[in-house]
């Protein structure tokens, strides 16, 4: 296996607010060819900002440090023109709430045509139609050709997410970044989209980063999972290892606090994590989870533990849970 995306000591700070928002505070990871890497975290944990940075999409108010290398090319060393040519052909991204990602007054046909022409300006309208039809078929949109004249509002949320996936794949990228792609959707539609992503991944050999706040959802698609909290990675492990033998108390808490199938208030009490997530404008000097952690001691409050362990199995904790 080779590495398609590597992120080294990424730090992102949004300076337009006072005090500045320290969204990502030193994150390193890599994505292997054909792998699906899951990122789980709550709002403000830095998971989306990391993905945006990986696609070179951060705006001018974001102060970025660290290194992001996509297929051997460092984003920082590229000029805007070169970055543009990478987006779409090497890396593509899909987002939450697909309806917001479309221009409401442009038909699908035109949207596809524009997307294809970014990288091949000579694409004719006819070629674009043929290509769009094939892509829509690939994401299982029935009657694809006749739907090319439709506007975004004529599709349901789930259908629109399929269209967005088709658009993301239009220029055959190798890496697909999925930022909460199922969050705004109903559960039955969510399951359909997850099944579709799995299918496309196999068929096209895509490398994927899948981001969600829901550990159970991430666990369904990811081979390996990063747990984000307070702008840092708290734990990294292969999916089954992470769920069965977590080392970081936060990971354990997150997994245990889900409402399990068949449990009922009259017999099973809820497992809780007390307190609330940290404020990215005022990060603690110690472990970001320390104020809420049941195992926390003095050292945790004052000193940030390092991310320890071998590649693929790391945790950041002074007093980790025992390996059973």
């Amino acid at each position: 296996m080779s590495t398609v995306l590597s992120v080294e000591d990424l730090r992102v700070t949004f300076v337009s607010q006072k005090p500045p928002v320290q969204a990502v505070r030193g994150v390193s990871f890599h994505l292997e060819t054909g792998e699906c890497l899951g990122i789980v975290g709550e709002s403000g944990s830095g998971k989306s900002v990391t993905a945006w940075a990986s696609a070179g999409l951060l705006g001018a108010d974001a102060l970025r440090e660290g290194k992001i290398v996509l297929e051997g090319q460092d984003w920082a060393e590229l000029n805007p023109e070169q970055r543009r040519s990478l987006r779409g052909t090497r890396v593509a991204m899909i987002f939450q709430e697909p309806s917001r990602s479309f221009d409401p007054i442009v038909t699908l046909e035109k949207t596809f045509w524009e997307t294809l022409r970014v990288h091949r300006p000579e694409t004719t309208r006819e070629e674009a139609r043929t290509r769009a039809t094939a892509l829509l078929n690939e994401v299982h949109i029935a009657d694809a050709e006749s739907r090319l004249g439709s506007f975004p509002h004529q599709f349901s949320g789930g259908m629109l997410q399929r269209v967005m996936i088709a658009l993301a794949l239009a220029n055959d990228p190798q890496v697909l970044l999925c930022d909460e792609p199922t969050t705004a959707l109903d559960v039955t539609i969510q399951a359909q989209i997850l099944a579709l992503l799995n299918e496309l991944r196999r068929r096209r050999g895509l490398s994927m980063v899948f981001i969600s706040h829901d550990l159970e959802t991430v666990a369904q698609v990811a081979d390996r999972i990063l747990v984000f909290y307070g702008g840092l990675i708290l734990e990294e492990a292969p999916t089954d290892v992470l769920l069965s033998r977590p080392r970081q108390p936060y990971t354990r808490g997150l997994w245990d606090s889900r409402v399990k199938r068949g449990s009922h208030y009259s017999t099973t009490p809820l497992t809780l994590i007390g307190g609330s997530p940290p404020d990215p404008q005022r990060p603690e000097p110690g472990c970001p989870f320390a104020p809420r952690c049941p195992r926390s001691q003095d050292r945790c409050q004052t000193e940030l533990p390092p991310l320890e362990g071998a590649v693929g199995r790391r945790h950041r904790c002074w007093f980790p849970l025992e390996e059973p």
Partner: peptide
Amino acid sequence: RSRETSAQK
């Protein structure tokens, strides 16, 4: 995994 490929609500 979902067995529905593209049913709509």
